[in-house]
């Protein structure tokens, strides 16, 4: 998956292109903002159960209407939308329908865990995937390379929740070696707490790595294998530069460009959390927060989590676009010309 960058011819052209891009992203953001507002409200049912709590069925209809009105839900949609935008402009994400907890606080609570869980696994996945991909790429078509390819594909093919269930069964229940749920256990301090967090990470991160390694592996393997016979590499070989240096300098760097794009895409999805794995391992991340908000029709939390997702994807996307020419010597020279 490569990001196409249109050829840029002059400085003013560059400025115009950047402005155009920015305008484009702004437009996408505006539409996304509207969707984050409308989508929760389009879902069947409503937030009454969450608003009214356990007693909702026992409440007088008039009281129930009052509960909804307290959150402005009796207002027409345009008014609600205006309030949403107004609050957002003040960086106020609103309060959860579930107990009135500030949504920003809920996200701030969940975000570090998501970053830890998904961040660790994306980096590990990238590192392992790229390393194996390089090996397989260099040995493409040979026995070992094919064996590696088959192995990685097999691993990668397993659905995360299924691997997670098996992992709990073996490592948790049978071996009793690792905790089966949560991010921490109570009562640890200092170094012990760090160790505690780390042991809780092992299974979910392991599952995410296994489930995600294929993408990086394949992208790397493919581009390394392609670069192996690219003119500049063969030229370098012909000049008598040692193989090792050719691989390091002339082969790997350009070959890793698509990996960079892939990494950006994965990082964009990062804040979306890893719903399935968070659910299986009861890990308190953003994916779970979003899922619970959807189930409870908690509009403010849904809006905020969707928005976080949209913004991160867009930002990472823009970053990928912007950094790609910087990393690719070919597009760089073209831009300067």
């Amino acid at each position: 998956m490569s990001v196409a960058s249109s050829p840029v011819r002059s400085r003013t052209g560059l400025v115009r292109a950047v402005l155009g891009r920015a305008g484009g992203y702004l437009a996408v953001f505006a539409v996304a903002l509207t969707i984050t507002f409308l989508l929760p409200r389009a879902l069947p049912g409503g937030p009454l159960r969450t608003l009214g709590g356990a007693d909702v069925a026992d409440l007088d209809p008039a009281v129930r209407a009052q509960v909804a009105a307290a959150y402005g839900l009796d207002q027409p949609l345009p008014v609600q939308f205006w309030r949403y935008l107004r609050d957002l402009a003040r960086l106020d994400l609103g309060e959860s329908f579930n107990g009135g907890r500030p949504v920003a606080e809920a996200i701030a609570d969940a975000l570090p865990w998501t970053l830890l869980l998904v961040g660790t696994s994306v980096l590990l996945t990238a590192a392992i995937g790229v390393a194996l991909g390089v090996i397989a790429g260099l040995r493409r078509g040979r026995g070992k390379g094919n064996l590696l390819l088959a192995g990685v594909l097999l691993l990668d093919a397993a659905p995360a929740f299924w691997v997670g269930m098996l992992a709990i069964l073996f490592f948790g229940v049978h071996l009793g070696a690792l905790p089966t749920f949560g991010a921490t256990t109570v009562g640890h301090t200092g170094l012990a707490a760090v160790g505690d967090v780390a042991t809780h990470l092992v299974l979910p991160v392991g599952v995410l790595v296994v489930a995600g390694i294929g993408q990086f592996f394949l992208v790397t393997r493919f581009s390394v294998a392609s670069a192996l016979h690219a003119p500049h590499v063969e030229h370098a070989h012909a000049r008598g530069i040692p193989h090792r240096r050719v691989v390091a300098r002339h082969l790997l760097r350009p070959a890793l460009l698509p990996v960079h794009t892939q990494l950006m895409i994965e990082l964009g999805w990062l804040v979306g959390g890893a719903l399935v794995v968070e659910t299986v391992f009861a890990y308190p991340g953003l994916g779970r927060l979003t899922f619970d908000a959807i189930q409870g029709r908690d509009y403010p939390t849904m809006q905020a989590t969707f928005l976080t997702l949209v913004v991160t994807v867009l930002v990472m996307n823009a970053l990928a676009d912007l950094t790609y020419p910087l990393l690719d010597p070919r597009t760089r020279t073209r831009g300067a010309a």
Binding site: G24, A32, L39, P44, I294, M302, L309, V310, V313
Partner: peptide, 30 residues
């Protein structure tokens, strides 16, 4: 032309960023 392609690609960005689960619930419900 680039301007039209730009619009299309921004739509692609939008789709990539859409929250998936509620869309599914929505479709399933209706």
């Amino acid at each position: 032309p680039p301007w039209a392609a730009g619009i299309v690609m921004r739509v692609v960005d939008l789709v990539l960023a859409l929250p998936f689960l509620p869309l599914l619930i929505l479709a399933a419900a209706f």
